[in-house]
Every structure is written in structure tokens, then in C-alpha cells.
Design a protein around this nucleic acid. Structure first.
Lengths: 361, 361
DNA sequence: ATAAACTATTCAAAGCTTTGAATATCAACA
DNA sequence: TGTTGATATTCAAAGCTTTGAATAGTTTAT
């Protein structure tokens, strides 16, 4: 049916079918201002023909001509990480009412894929880029290209203000403090901490917050009980790491009545490791996670954790982005840092310390 | 720096900077066959200039001219459902070595969003569409448009061969059989089943498979112990449904020593419900899930479940798709049905039936 | 009757690339 | 000298849409 080479129905097909010119058809089907002038009968004829033929405008041609792609790139470091999707959902939500379309890409924790995705976004002329937390970002030279091309960029999940990029992230330090304070309030004195890997941005501030919470107390942390996660690639690996680290700690024969894990998956691994060693949570040992992702909510006992408002962060970021793309060519304002407030959500994996039964293997 | 109106560096910018014509620049930067003819020095000059200026080809213009978008649409019914991402990963994996790009969109279980996404894909001239399981699909009239425009379509997660669409899905009936047989082998006689909602494709075959497994045995299912899930929108809802249904069943005072849940999230809800009623898994009651998603693996006890090879299904689907897009205009072959084989993965949520302690509330 | 003001529609250029055909240059060959 | 054949580069059209300006045609005001 369509005559054009592409196999797709074009304006020219509709024009031929109705006897009107391509311009007229375009004006009507795109709802241009000029369409106020066209006769109602014409409008009907053309609309009907378009529908009958199955016309769908070519987004590439339109976007080329209009000099606006109507697209905002969203690049996640790993979409399969339960942390990412809520952020993306926030973005999607914020874009719903607009006529921007999120182009979501997944770096799959691979540097090469990350760079390629960024390049492809640039080529598709996204009007803005939202990057979800990635260590990969600092070294990439594409960053320079993005700036050179005047595409506004935002990052959520880590602080890149030193590189001049407005950043949305959790107040990790306060989160760490909250988690530790919770355990202290429950009367725990022998506390183990599984710290985040050095290569990850969140690690240091969370740790710092925990130490700060201890400052006014007499509680100290034993070095054997503060191991560090290696740099991981998948959520599954964090689980395994938590599981094996807790087993090592049990072997160390240092008492502890509570464990503070770097994130929820690690915490779930800890629960598993404890269980395998015959310890029960929270009776023998309390466990606290971080982030509040789905697996932590649906596990039994549900994991007490520090909630990170990922959806909200995505939403706030995209709202900011919308203001940026609406004023094209404006001087990129100073990079700002937007901290979200963490919230402790108490669930079933923590309990009052049973003083007499402090865990001793 | 760039002179063109768009604010992006164009071929013409590079041409001006080097003194060569736009054609020459294009030939070199796009690696066209003709580039064999150009002088090495020219090549260098132009490449250098392109890099210096930060040139990135405009994908829209290129794709318009080449009549190929190099894009394959992937439409998931809900990206935040742990079922979807593995399929998407399989697709991504299969596309890695090609120069096709997946355009992944998320319908967020909303019919309106689903239709809009499909429309946008059409407008962006995707060369193929892979839809991940959706009840929304059958009624949409866009299906007709997609066909009219000759875009090959595949679905994974449900059987749409009656509508002429090649489908990739699990052999649900065998999956149901496997799950039930597992419980029978463990000696369970009083078995409860939480059936899937009517509106969901998988429900019937899984149920049928379970019944078939019972056929050669003397075990029967009590009607009060085979409730049905309502149609749900989010993974969280399935969890809550499982939790509340199991509580109802406990109230019914019918004995059961095992529960077969429609999917993993429901199973996790069941575990929670049992736990809240003071029952332990698997000692008092075994629980079997379905799908094998991340939360089921990292929960403790880990959920015994029927593994659905989602990654592999995504991979197989996209490989098929690649053959379809390579022969444009070919007559769409007959729709075929590709069933994947389920596998039971035994974990810690099931155990031998403790005959004497059949669960009685 | 004529200018002015609408109304309804079309022209033609532009947005950025790609590419078949064309041009220009130069060497070699008969 | 004129032909052939490379080699290196450019012309110009096309892909589909949008849009400022232009063209007819009709009505209103003067």
C-alpha cells in the first residue's frame, strides 16, 4: 500500500490519497498553528485517510527539522540492580506529563558499554542526560564532548560536583549515623560492620557517619569485625560476599550481637550466613541493611534498613533537568549538590540486644 | 564553536574547518566504501579535526538517509518486575555483537503507556519489536498498524500464535507438573495451591500441569485450599496477596503441609504469612515458588522454585528477530511457538512431609 | 470599484547525512 | 596526440518533515 521506499506510510502517501499537498497534510496531522485556517472538511478527509493508511509520522525527520529530539537520556550503571529501577521510575513519572521521552540505557557495569551508550545518546541528540551512579563516569572523555555539545547533565547516586556536574544523592553520612544509632538504642555494644568497597563513592561517608554515632558513646568497633567488601559487579555477588564475610567473622571468635551491612543484598547474605551457622536473626544477632530495595522488604524476617528515596531522587533530578532543557543555550549554572534525607525503617531483623547471650561461637 | 544552528557540530563544520567538501568528510567519517580512494593525509586531517571539534554524527539524519534505524524496540510490561530484566538482559546480550541498538521501554503495567510506547517505537522506525509478556497486547489496534508497516514482532512470556505472532515462553504446564511432583516425592498429601489470576496467561497451564501430576496419585486438592490471586499490578501486591491468602487458609482449619504458589513473590508472601502465624518453613510447611527471580534466591530460607530461563528466552527471541530483520520485505513466515523447558531448583523452603505434624491450626 | 483583510492552500527551503554520478588531475600507453 | 585508467574529490539529489512566505480566492470596508 505505501508507495515510499521505506515501506512506511509517509505524508506524501496521504497527500496522494487525498489530493491535497504535503504541506496541508503536515499542518493538519501535526496540529500546527496554521491548522486553525484549514477547512473542517479538509481536516476530516485527511485525518480519515491518515488513519486508514496507518500513517505514523517519522520521528527522525520531525526531530531533525524541529531541532528538538524530545528525548532525555537515562543511563543506569546496571538496570538489573534493584537500586536502579526505582530511580528510573521516578524519572519516568516526572516525564509522564511532558512530551519528553526517556531513552533508557543500561551500562551493565561495563565501562565499554557505558561509553558506547553515552556516545549513542549524543548521536541521537538527547537534550539532556541523567546518569545513575557510576564510578565509570569520572574518567570518561565523553564527558568533555557532552559539555562541548552543550547537553545538560545530571548525576544521581554520587557526588560529581567537583567535576562541575549537579548531583543528587543520599546524605550517606546521616544514613550511616541513623543505622548505628538504631543499634545503639537497642542496647547493642558488640557491633560488626561490613564496609563498602573503596572504589565505591558511598562507602566513606556511610562509614564516617557510623563512627560519628559512636563518638559520644563508649562503644568501639573491633578491627576484625569491620571487614570491607571487594568491588562487585552484580547484586548476587554482594549477597555471596555478605554470606562469606559473616562466616569469617564467626570464625574469628570475636563476639558480636549485631551487624551493619553496606547494603541490603549484603545484609541478606549475612542473614543466610548466620542461618547456616545455626544463628537466628534477630534473636542471636541483629542485621541492618542499607537502601531499602525490594528483596529486603519481602524477605522474612524483613530487613531493617536505611531507606533511600530513590524514586524521589529520580523525580527531583528529572524535574531539575526539565528546567535546564527549557532554556536552551543558557549558561550552565553552577553545579549544585542535592542531598536527600535517609530514613530508618525498622523491620524484623533487629531486636533489643540480649545481653546475656552475646554471640560467641 | 559549532556554527550550525543546532548547537551540535555537523559535517559542514568539519568541512569548513578542513577546507574539504561535506561529501569527502562524510565518506571518511562514516567509513564508506569510497573512503578507500581518499588520500591518507586527507583522512588524517579530517579525522583529527572531527575529534578536535567533538563531532558526533547525527543519528537521525543518518538513519533517515540510510533507511535503517538500526533499532529494535523492546517493550516490557513492567521493568520493575524482577521477571522482566533478565529477559531484557538476554536481548542486550544477543545484540551486543551486532550494530543494533535496543530501545527499551517500560509500560509500567498501564495500558495507555503501553499503547503510547508502541506508537513511539513505530514513529522511531524500529526495525523490529519484542514485547515482553502482556495481557494488554491482544486488544490493541496498534498491532494492526505494526503489521501494516511490516515491522516484525515477537512476544516472550505468552502465547500469541493465535494472533499470528511468534511466541517464546515457558512450558508452563510442565513447570506446574514439576512443582507438584516435587511435593509428592517429598511425601506431601495435603497440598494447597495459590492459583494465578484468570486474566493472566500462565495461570491455566500451570494449574493444568499440577492436576496432571496428581492424576496417577490418590492425592486430591481441597477447594478451600486452592484460592486464586486477583489481577495484580506490582510485585509488591503479589507479596501481600500471598501473605493474606495463606492467613485465610490457616483460618479455614483445613490441614496442609505444603503450598504451591503461583510465583516467587507470592511464595515469599506465603512464607511471611506463615511466619506471622508462628509456623516455620519448611518444618511446618513447605513452600514452592515459580519463576526463580532474585528475591527468591536471596531470601532465607531460599525458595524452592521452578526456574524459568528468562535470559535464554530473551536471547533466543532476539536471535530469531535478527534473522527476521536481515531479510526485509520477506513474507512473514508462519507464527511459531517456542517452548522453553522449566527446571525445578530445590532449595531450602521445601522438606520431607512430617506426617505426624500435619499442619492444623 | 478598489484596497484591505481574511480564508484556504501550496511553494520551497532547510535540517544533516549518504551516495550514485560527475569532475578534475595526472600518469601511462599506443 | 588522444585514449584509457586510475586516483582524489565534489555535485546534487534524496530521505521525511516543518514552516515562513507566497498564492489564489472570497469577503468586507471605504
Amino acid at each position: 500500500m505505501p508507495q515510499s521506499k521505506s515501506g512506511h506510510v509517509t505524508l506524501s502517501d496521504v497527500a496522494n490519497a487525498t489530493g491535497y499537498s504535503v504541506s496541508t497534510v503536515s499542518i493538519i496531522l501535526s496540529g500546527a498553528p496554521l491548522s486553525a485556517n484549514v477547512a473542517a472538511s479538509t481536516r476530516e478527509t485527511i485525518r480519515a485517510a491518515a488513519k486508514r493508511l496507518g500513517y505514523h509520522p517519522d520521528a527522525r525527520a520531525r526531530s531533525l527539522r524541529k531541532q528538538r529530539s524530545g528525548t532525555i537520556g537515562v543511563l543506569a550503571y546496571d538496570l538489573s540492580d534493584p537500586y536502579c529501577m526505582p530511580v528510573v521510575q521516578g524519572v519516568q513519572h516526572g516525564l509522564q506529563a511532558t512530551d519528553y521521552l526517556p531513552l533508557v540505557m543500561d551500562a551493565q557495569t561495563e565501562r565499554k558499554v557505558f561509553d558506547k551508550s553515552l556516545r549513542l545518546m549524543l548521536e541521537r541528540r538527547v537534550e539532556g542526560v541523567v546518569v545513575i551512579a557510576s564510578w565509570m563516569f569520572d574518567e570518561t572523555s565523553l564527558l568533555a564532548d557532552i559539555k562541548k555539545n552543550g547537553v545538560p547533565t545530571l548525576v544521581v547516586g554520587r557526588d560529581l560536583t567537583p567535576s562541575g556536574i549537579t548531583s543528587y544523592l543520599l546524605d550517606n553520612e546521616q544514613g550511616g549515623r541513623l543505622a548505628m544509632e538504631h543499634l545503639l538504642q537497642l542496647g547493642h555494644k558488640k557491633i560488626a560492620v561490613i564496609r563498602g568497597p573503596d572504589g565505591m563513592f558511598d562507602s566513606a561517608p556511610r562509614w564516617k557517619g557510623m563512627l560519628r554515632a559512636l563518638q559520644q558513646t563508649s562503644v568501639t568497633l573491633a578491627e576484625q569485625l569491620t571487614p570491607q567488601l571487594p568491588l562487585l559487579n552484580t547484586p548476587g555477588e554482594a549477597f555471596e560476599a555478605g554470606r562469606s564475610l559473616v562466616k569469617h567473622m564467626l570464625k574469628s571468635r570475636r563476639r558480636f550481637t549485631a551487624i551493619l551491612a553496606f547494603d541490603d543484598l549484603t545484609a541478606l547474605g549475612v542473614v543466610r550466613g548466620l542461618h547456616e551457622a545455626g544463628k537466628s536473626v534477630p534473636d542471636d544477632c541483629s542485621v541492618v541493611g542499607f537502601d531499602d530495595v525490594l528483596p529486603a522488604r519481602v524477605a522474612t524476617p524483613a530487613i531493617t534498613t536505611v531507606h533511600q528515596p530513590m524514586r524521589q531522587m529520580g523525580l527531583k533530578a528529572i524535574e531539575h533537568m526539565l528546567t535546564l532543557v527549557e532554556k536552551p543555550g543558557a549558561v550552565q549554572e553552577l553545579a549544585s549538590l542535592c542531598l536527600s534525607t535517609p530514613e530508618l525503617v525498622e523491620r524484623a531483623s533487629t531486636a533489643v540486644a540480649a545481653k546475656k547471650r552475646a554471640l560467641l561461637v
